[in-house]
Nucleic acid binder design. Sequence first.
DNA 1: AAGTGGTCTAGACCACGTG
DNA 2: ACGTGGTCTAGACCACTTT
Lengths: 239, 239
Amino acid sequence: MQRSDTPVYLQVRDQLWQWIQKNQLGSQERLPAERELAKHFNTTRVTIRQALGQLEAEGRIFRSNRRGWYITPRRLTYDPSLDIGFYNNVTEQGLTPGTETLSKFLIEVPDWLTEISGLAEGSSIYYVLRRRSIDHRCVVVEHNYINPKSCPGLLDQDTDLSIWQLLREKYNLVPGQRNIEIFPQALTGDEADALGVNSGSAGLYMQRLTLDKSGVFLEYDREYWLHDALKVIVQVNEK
Amino acid sequence: MQRSDTPVYLQVRDQLWQWIQKNQLGSQERLPAERELAKHFNTTRVTIRQALGQLEAEGRIFRSNRRGWYITPRRLTYDPSLDIGFYNNVTEQGLTPGTETLSKFLIEVPDWLTEISGLAEGSSIYYVLRRRSIDHRCVVVEHNYINPKSCPGLLDQDTDLSIWQLLREKYNLVPGQRNIEIFPQALTGDEADALGVNSGSAGLYMQRLTLDKSGVFLEYDREYWLHDALKVIVQVNEK
DNA sequence: AAGTGGTCTAGACCACGTG
DNA sequence: ACGTGGTCTAGACCACTTT
């Protein structure tokens, strides 16, 4: 095993991936235990875990806390400029969506949001915290801040469904301009806990500021995604 | 150190970050050696490296191969829908850009690109491979594929500058529609080597397909970024 | 030559998930 | 109760960078 000059853990990574493909492990199927792999590859758990970490970073496998390692499902294709909603987006791609509302409140506008939203200091805003899953795997935590003036009574609705569908159908609101911000960021603290992953797991952060057709602040949201769960596509035209 | 129930490496992470802030370590400044940190925190290098790995995942520090750990510079804000070019984009944000052309050729269109580009099988295309840096830190590897029919002789120009500026100024070409795809992906193999990072380092993959104003294929590129080097912003309007 | 991070060993105990 | 991954120890040698 140690004859070439590539590190053992990269050799293990490649052989393990070959093994996975040969045995045709499919989405969400479980890998052998780390100790078994260590015995099979005649090395220690530390090195095995380094190899597993590589495959994890590449998005090929993921871990479920103290349960084991599993094959990563294919990425969801996600167009943040559209409003087809999570449920439709996921089902259209042949996957099973799930949404849980973890909390929803009418809160005072946080300081950092007053400037962004243009809402007056001390005024109120709807806050909805949701966790969403694909094929029973939690993939994203979403913080929504919605202008209550545009949609009074929103929180009495079922927020496990698409908020944008509610806004469109019950309140006749349609999004206009959107400012989107995306960057890789590790999941830590509350977000890591909510998704059941370890602190430091790779993630993708996305935030959207949405105004309605007349330029009034409508919604602001922050989404914390597992790094391997999605592919973002956007279509733009030159300004 | 071990009295609470949070793991040691997370405690070390937090204390180390506090120490960094107290000592006001700035962009690209070096941290103490791992062995020193291990002694100071009265633990082993393994645990120290776990703590450093957390800060790395969070984008706060980065490693330079066998040289040490350094403070991450702030992220570049990058709008892929614009064409201000890397050089301008970076300098406008008070940073120092650098570009190296690693190779440039007229090649046969790869199979996977024929369908995307609409170019005939067996026809030719310009290929440019570049590596770019911010404040002397390599942050992205870029593969460009450009339609030679639109810009004959392009490769005789200096490709260390903005290709889009060349296209605009010398060939009078302006981008029209753009299809962009973005997702987190570990850097491995050639890309990791080119950026001088370890295989499995967190990265962001971005590809763009650009047509000109009349809908003709103009350019396709694949960019492999360090995960902590950029923040993508896009502005879209509802369709 | 000395110092650095990169890799690897051979264990150990713990917390948690599953039966 | 048992098996799992999560954490941690106390070393070792190597490859590379810097002095």
